[in-house]
Simulated scan of single mutants.
Amino acid sequence: MYPWIVFIHSVSAMVSIGPFFVLIPMLRKLQTAEGELKSSYLDSFHFVVRLSKHAGHVLVFSGLLLMWLGRWPWTTPYIAGTFVVLFASLFFMARAFSPTIRKLRQPENDHPALLRKLRRSLYLYLFVLFVMLWLMMMKPLLW
């Protein structure tokens, strides 16, 4: 059972990180997109954020199962560090993407500034995801 949960945990990590890379070239196209095309790009952004959120739920649940079955204590440095980064990223993700995407759908807002904010949020969130991935893969002794 444990190897299957490790597999599910790994796949959910890939699904929660991978789709964000599709958004990088889409950001460039969003700068000049109009009408239906712009709406389609924003729908894609929204879908990736939701997919990542739900894959993150599977990731956390499977991680907790692995901790329980493997008898890993909460005080293990890389586990505690990952949860600290995870909770910080939850607040970040809730405020970074969906409100900006909603504002981009409205014609009266400053689109170049919102696209810069969306780009910055995307790169920052990818960095946070990679920090969590690094903690889980490298298992550093933080204390």
Rank of each mutant, 00 (worst) to 15 (best):
K53L: 10
I8W: 14
V11P: 01
W68N: 12
I79Y: 03
E34D: 09
L66G: 09
M67F: 07
L59K: 04
L69M: 12
Y41I: 04
S10E: 11
K53P: 00
L37N: 08
A55W: 08
Y41C: 05
S44D: 05
L27Q: 01
M67T: 12
L69P: 00
D43V: 01
L66A: 10
A55M: 03
V49D: 10
L30M: 10
S52H: 07
L30A: 13
K53S: 12
I24T: 07
W72E: 12
E36A: 11
A33N: 05
G70K: 02
H46I: 03
L59F: 14
V58Y: 08
D43P: 00
H9A: 14
T76I: 11
L27F: 00
L64C: 07
I24Q: 05
L59W: 12
F21A: 04
V48F: 05
I17Q: 03
R71Q: 14
F45E: 08
V6E: 14
W72I: 15
V48G: 08
F45A: 10
K29V: 03
S52F: 00
A55F: 06
K53Q: 12
I5S: 11
V49S: 06
P19T: 07
V15D: 10
I79C: 05
T32Q: 08
L27I: 12
L27N: 02
L27G: 00
L42P: 06
V58F: 13
Y41V: 02
L51K: 03
V11C: 10
T76L: 14
R71L: 09
G63P: 08
G63A: 07
G63T: 11
L27K: 00
L64K: 03
W68Y: 15
F61Y: 09
Y78F: 15
L59Y: 11
F20D: 01
P25I: 01
L37R: 13
F21E: 01
K53T: 15
K53V: 13
F61A: 15
R50N: 14
V15A: 13
V15I: 15
P73Y: 11
H46M: 03
L66R: 01
E34I: 00
S40V: 00
L64Q: 02
L69T: 05
G35H: 11
G70A: 09
